[in-house]
Computed example of a mutant assay.
Amino acid sequence: MAIIRGRLMGLDMSTLAKQFKTSKSVIWATLNTPNQSKATGRPSTTSPGVDRSIFRIRKKNHFLKSTGIKSEL
């Protein structure tokens, strides 16, 4: 965020690189990287309520295998 803010204030890349003690290529890559705030990976197949139930079952009997947890659900 500080690099982006510095660029918006009008600082050039070499000044930013000196300020953050890094190379200009790192500054350039930071400024040109798209926003990666979106969630990545496979979506969850269980709801938060089912997740809580699984944790509760697992806490009662930590030797229970996944097939046993599935049968209890």
Score class of each variant (00 low, 15 high):
Lys65Val: 10
Met9Ala: 11
Ser37Glu: 15
Lys70Gly: 10
Pro43Cys: 03
Gln19His: 07
Ser23Phe: 00
Met13Arg: 12
Ser53Met: 13
Ile3Val: 14
Ser14Asn: 04
Thr33Gly: 03
Ile54Asp: 00
Thr40Asp: 01
Arg7Gln: 14
Gly10Thr: 00
Gly68Arg: 00
Gly10Gln: 05
Ala2Trp: 05
Leu11Ser: 01
Lys59His: 10
Ser25Ile: 06
Ala29Ser: 13
Lys24Cys: 04
Thr45Ile: 06
Ser71Leu: 06
Arg7Pro: 05
Ile3Tyr: 06
Ala39Cys: 04
Glu72Gln: 07
Pro43Phe: 11
Thr40Cys: 02
Leu64Asp: 11
Pro48Ala: 10
Thr45Met: 10
Gly10Tyr: 01
Gly6Ser: 02
Thr22His: 05
Leu11His: 08
Asp51Met: 11
Leu16Met: 13
Arg5Thr: 07
Arg42Cys: 09
Lys70Ser: 13
Phe20His: 08
Thr30Pro: 04
Val50Trp: 01
Lys60Glu: 15
Ser23Ile: 00
Ser25Phe: 09
Ser23Leu: 02
Asn35Gly: 11
Ser23Asn: 10
Thr15Lys: 12
Asn32Phe: 05
Ser44Ala: 06
Pro48Gly: 09
Phe20Asn: 02
Asp51His: 12
Ala17Pro: 00
Asp12Ser: 10
Ser53Glu: 12
Gly6Ala: 05
Ser37Val: 11
Lys21Val: 07
Pro34Trp: 02
Thr33Met: 08
Thr46Leu: 11
Asn61Ser: 09
Gly10Pro: 03
Arg42Val: 10
Asp12Leu: 04
Met13Val: 12
Thr46Trp: 08
Gly49Ala: 15
Thr15Cys: 10
Asn32Ser: 07
Gln19Leu: 15
Ser23Val: 01
Gln19Trp: 14
Asn32Glu: 10
Asn61Leu: 13
Gln19Val: 11
Gly49Phe: 13
Phe63Asn: 15
Lys21Ile: 05
Ser66Asp: 13
Thr45Gly: 08
Ile54Trp: 08
Leu64Met: 15
Ser66Trp: 10
Arg52Leu: 00
Gln36Phe: 07
Trp28Glu: 09
Arg58Pro: 00
Lys38Met: 06
Thr67Gln: 14
Leu31Trp: 02
Arg7Gly: 03
Ala29Leu: 07
Thr30Asn: 06
Phe55Ile: 05
Thr67Arg: 13
Gln19Ser: 14
Ser44Asn: 03
Pro48Val: 06
Gly68Pro: 03
Ser47Ala: 05
Arg56Trp: 08
Arg58Asn: 06
Leu31Ile: 11
Asp51Lys: 11
Asn35Gln: 07
Arg42Glu: 08
Ala39Ser: 13
Thr46Glu: 11
Glu72Pro: 00
Gly41Met: 06
Phe63Asp: 15
Leu11Ala: 10
Trp28Asn: 15
Ala17Tyr: 00
Leu73Ala: 02
Thr22Ile: 08
Ser53Cys: 08
Thr45Phe: 03
Met1Ile: 04
Gly10Ile: 00
Lys24Tyr: 07
Ala39Phe: 10
Arg42Ile: 08
Thr46Val: 12
Val26Pro: 03
Arg42Pro: 09
Lys18Glu: 11
Leu16Phe: 09
Arg52Tyr: 01
Ala2Asn: 04
Lys70Ala: 13
Lys60Trp: 04
